[in-house]
């Protein structure tokens, strides 16, 4: 039995977000972190390992520096790490990304009692699409927004959050779960883990390692294989000086509400 976790390294958007003059994001100037929801996914997998002794494999797609993040995850307790990296994969949208990650998971070998964990969404793209799309391409059931996970044999019972409550959903392995922060509190790296993390294997899957999979085709991966393209990216007008609303009466409040409505906040 394996717990496979898909993880993404993302720019830290809680700090200052730097934008280049041409309107693209200045990624070089921003610190990178492990995507927060993915940390909850890793924790869920490590909990399963604590209970059952299963193997935890973390998978990421990204440039070679993402190896640093994988070492951190190994230091948290993951057993094995896969870096999917190649020029051919660059520029992928969610569709193409999920093709590649699904192919990587297939190469890793998806067994009957395995669980694939993802975060609900990454803070850089905010799409929440890759998990569902991987599940579709692997032909396995998915449960998203998991806030509680129970496993009995090959039956998985999940508390899936809705805006106004939750559903309890049952499925079977192999399956894919996307995790939210309500699920758990991610553990820290341990000193022992940090000492050992350089002894654990990090395997690189490049284009040649995956190219025999039918999911990997120039027409389905990378920039050319992405159904969606960025047409324009731009920065909204700079926030100007704030507006003082004169008088403190009902009409002032109505003016404020009008402004908030214009901005779609109400």
């Amino acid at each position: 039995m394996k717990a496979i976790v898909c993880v993404k390294q993302v720019p830290d958007t809680s700090g200052k977000v730097a934008v280049n003059p041409d309107g693209t994001l200045n990624r070089a100037s921003m610190a990178t972190i492990i995507n927060p929801d993915d940390k909850n996914a890793v924790e869920a997998a490590l909990k399963l390992k604590d209970e059952t002794g299963c193997k935890v494999v973390v998978v990421t797609m990204g440039p070679p520096p993402a190896q640093g993040m994988l070492r951190e995850l190994l230091a948290m307790g993951a057993d094995e790490a896969i870096l999917v990296s190649g020029r051919e994969f660059g520029g992928s949208d969610t569709f193409a990304t999920s093709q590649i990650l699904a192919a990587a998971i297939k190469k890793l070998g998806l067994e009957d009692d395995d669980i694939v964990y993802c975060g609900r969404q990454a803070i850089d793209g905010d799409t929440a699409q890759v998990g569902s799309q991987i599940a579709e391409k692997l032909g396995i059931p998915q449960i998203s927004y998991a806030a509680d996970i129970k496993k009995e044999g090959n039956t998985i019972t999940v508390k899936r959050m809705l805006e106004d409550g939750y559903m309890t959903i049952q499925t079977h392995t192999p399956c894919l779960l996307t995790c939210i922060k309500e699920l758990n509190v991610p553990r820290y790296m341990s000193i022992k883990g940090i000492m050992k993390c350089y002894d654990k294997p990090v395997t690189v899957y490049d284009y040649n390692a995956l190219k025999d999979d039918p999911l990997i085709d120039p027409a389905t991966i990378g920039l050319k294989g992405s159904p969606t393209n960025i047409f324009k990216s731009f920065t909204p007008p700079q926030k100007g000086q704030g507006k003082m609303l004169e008088g403190a009466d009902m009409s002032t409040c109505e003016e404020l509400v009008g402004e908030l409505q214009k901005k779609h906040i109400i």
């Binding site: 969610t94 569709f95 929440a128 569902s132 579709e136 159904p227």
Partner: peptide
């Protein structure tokens, strides 16, 4: 919708823009 959309887009082999 965010659970359903990507599953459908992947099956239909088309693009989906989120949110």
């Amino acid at each position: 919708g965010r659970d359903l959309g990507p599953r459908c887009a992947a099956r239909l082999h088309t693009g989906l823009t989120a949110d």
